[in-house]
């Protein structure tokens, strides 16, 4: 069984997940939105998986960067879910997915501005107080900045500091953003407050044109992202959990297991 690397659990995996001898993750991650108040077949399946692996949560709908109020009714459901399933880590996206009282079901970029830093930080603190745990916020991939007045890395560091929250270090996203916005991912990483890193995400992407990558989680991880991963984890103070994400074009589980084991081998090499 892997020591450091988990996998995003997909309903597409089906029964094969627990039967695949090669697939032995350290934990699984689920989006609470896909499982809250779900019974029947899927609850039964999740119970079987949860009996074998610790569960992490990666939320989709908190919309921490939204101008709209935080939805505490929804957050109460998240809290109950996390209690029921003994969820170890709750991460969310540094983005917004609801605006003008309408959900958008995808991740929109927050303007890199000081007033947004203040707004988001205050909301993260309220969420943390409500849940009684630290929120782990993910650096999201984005395809255009919106109304930026400061750099992305300054924006992120300011929120980490002001909200006193933790960081989901999505290394594929940093690679994607570096490519899309023409900056050096290693330089970006060197400027991040890495003492806040609690969790790492790794995934593949689709290059759709000469100057644009879309963060699809629909392809295997490419070698430059593996290289960036090795570079990054060597800069951390110590081990943190690492997640392999695959949301589309799901291959055979044995193929995913190979990718997971590759990540695990890098972790073992750097952290042991």
């Amino acid at each position: 069984m892997a020591e450091f690397v988990g996998i995003g659990y997909r309903k597409d995996f089906g029964n094969a997940f627990l039967e695949c001898a090669e697939m032995q993750p350290a934990f699984i991650e689920v989006a609470p939105e896909n499982w809250i108040e779900v019974g029947g077949y899927w609850k039964n399946e999740l119970r079987k998986v949860a009996d074998k692996y610790p569960i992490f949560n990666h939320g989709l709908s908190l919309s921490i960067g939204s101008p709209d109020p935080v939805d505490f009714d929804f957050l109460e459901k998240v809290k109950r879910f996390q209690s029921e399933w003994d969820v170890k880590i709750y991460s969310e996206h540094l983005s917004y997915s609801k605006c003008d009282n309408a959900h958008l079901y995808d991740l929109l970029p927050i303007p890199f501005r000081q007033d947004a830093v203040d707004h988001v930080s205050e909301r993260i603190q309220r969420v943390q107080d409500f849940l009684g745990r630290k929120l782990v916020i993910e650096i999201v991939s984005y395809y255009t900045p919106v109304a930026a007045e400061m750099s992305e890395v300054d924006f992120i560091n300011a929120i980490l500091d002001k909200a006193d929250c933790e960081l989901l270090f999505d290394i594929n996203n940093i690679y994607v953003n570096g490519f899309n916005h023409n900056y050096d991912p290693k330089g970006f990483i060197d400027s991040l407050d890495l003492s806040r890193v609690k969790y790492i995400h790794m995934a593949g992407h689709d290059k759709v044109s000469d100057d644009l990558i879309i963060d699809t989680h629909g392809q295997p991880i490419i070698d430059p992202v593996f290289d960036l991963f090795e570079y990054s984890i060597g800069k951390l103070n110590g081990p943190v959990p690492v997640l392999l994400e695959r949301d589309f074009n799901i291959p055979e589980l044995t193929e995913l297991a190979q990718e997971l084991n590759h990540l695990e081998a890098i972790c073992q090499n750097v952290w042991k």
């Binding site: 917004y96 605006c99 003008d100 309408a102 958008l104 927050i110």
Partner: peptide
Amino acid sequence: QTIEQQQLLAA
């Protein structure tokens, strides 16, 4: 102005 830009993108 920040809220307005977010609203424009969402709309």
